[in-house]
Amino acid sequence: MGYPVFADDLKVMDLNKKSVVNTINQYSYCVAEKDPAFKAALKASDILLPDGVGITIAAKILLGEKVKKIAGADLHAHLLEQMNEKNGSCFYLGASQTTLEKIGQRLATEYPNIRVGSFSPPFKAKFTAEDNERMIREVNTFAPDVLFIGMTAPKQEKWSLEHKDSLNVKGPICAIGAVFDFYAGTVKRPGKVWRDLGLEWLGRLLKEPKRMWKRYIYNGAVFGGYLLKEKFLSKSAPEQG
């Protein structure tokens, strides 16, 4: 569907190379269709993880490829394990100060070898030039191996792309949104059984129906329409040669 979706294992990631890592699911796909800047940011990702069964189904139907779902939480856990082994460092940019403190407390127990920094940017629809300068300065002063950004989509993906070259980060710059709350415990992620069945979305829908129905039900239908359209176009396209 026009996106370079990652189809490999996270172990192949080069943690010593600065790269922008984003995720895509049916919701972000639908949003990107109406937001050219967001679409450009997703397509410019160095690594774009398939964070949703809708994307894995689309890869199978349109490309005949078997792609494994990799959620932002999976990426987060993988990188923490790697950094803990190597006495690395990470920085959390986003969320509230309370959430960041809870993340720091949990990391100190589970990954004691990681040096951790964080900054809570102002909560607003659009950052000023001064806001951006402060955020970049906070990250660069710490100079982490890995940067985690949690500002919600599409703000975090656009911000990563815009400021990548200004950030003093040795490795991945990861826009992982809700993972901040999952790890802090302020929002409970659906359990392993739901995830193994490919029904994490249903678990979140049942927990927060008023907030999540549009994301999963409405946009699920919209995404299905896009998928059918792409399938029809691929069948009707003249063969080369």
Rank of each mutant, 00 (worst) to 15 (best):
M1E: 12
Y3G: 03
P4C: 01
P4H: 04
P4L: 03
V5G: 03
F6D: 02
A7K: 10
L10Q: 05
M13T: 01
L15C: 15
K17W: 07
K18Y: 03
V20M: 09
Y27L: 04
Y29K: 02
A32P: 12
A32M: 07
K34Q: 09
K34H: 10
K34N: 13
K34P: 05
D35K: 03
P36K: 14
P36F: 09
A37N: 12
L42K: 06
K43F: 06
K43M: 07
K43P: 00
A44L: 08
D46A: 05
L49F: 06
L49T: 01
P50Q: 13
P50D: 07
D51K: 01
K60V: 05
I61E: 04
L62N: 05
L62I: 07
L62G: 05
G64L: 04
E65A: 15
K66A: 15
K68E: 15
I70Y: 02
D74M: 10
L79M: 15
L80M: 15
L80P: 07
L80Y: 08
Q82V: 01
Q82M: 08
M83V: 06
M83E: 11
M83Q: 13
N84L: 02
N84D: 11
E85A: 15
E85M: 08
G88S: 05
C90F: 02
C90H: 02
C90N: 07
Y92C: 12
G94F: 09
S96L: 15
S96D: 10
I103Y: 00
Q105E: 15
R106L: 14
L107D: 11
T109W: 05
E110C: 12
I114S: 01
S118Q: 08
P121A: 05
A129M: 11
E130C: 04
N132G: 09
I136A: 08
I136P: 05
E138C: 09
T141E: 12
T141G: 10
D145H: 14
D145F: 07
F148Y: 14
I149E: 09
G150L: 09
M151N: 10
T152H: 09
A153W: 00
A153Y: 09
L161E: 06
P172R: 03
P172H: 06
C174M: 09
C174P: 03
I176P: 01
G177Q: 00
A178P: 00
V179R: 00
F180S: 00
F180V: 01
D181V: 04
D181Q: 11
Y183K: 00
A184R: 01
G185L: 00
G185W: 00
T186D: 01
V187P: 01
R189V: 14
P190N: 02
P190S: 13
P190G: 02
G191N: 14
V193A: 15
D196E: 15
L199P: 01
E200A: 06
L202V: 07
R204A: 05
K207C: 10
K207F: 08
P209R: 10
P209W: 03
P209E: 13
K210C: 11
R211C: 10
W213Q: 10
W213Y: 14
K214L: 11
K214T: 09
R215Y: 04
R215D: 03
I217C: 10
N219I: 09
G220R: 05
G220W: 04
G220Q: 05
G220K: 04
V222G: 11
G225F: 08
Y226I: 10
L227A: 08
A237V: 02
E239C: 13
Q240Y: 13
Q240T: 12
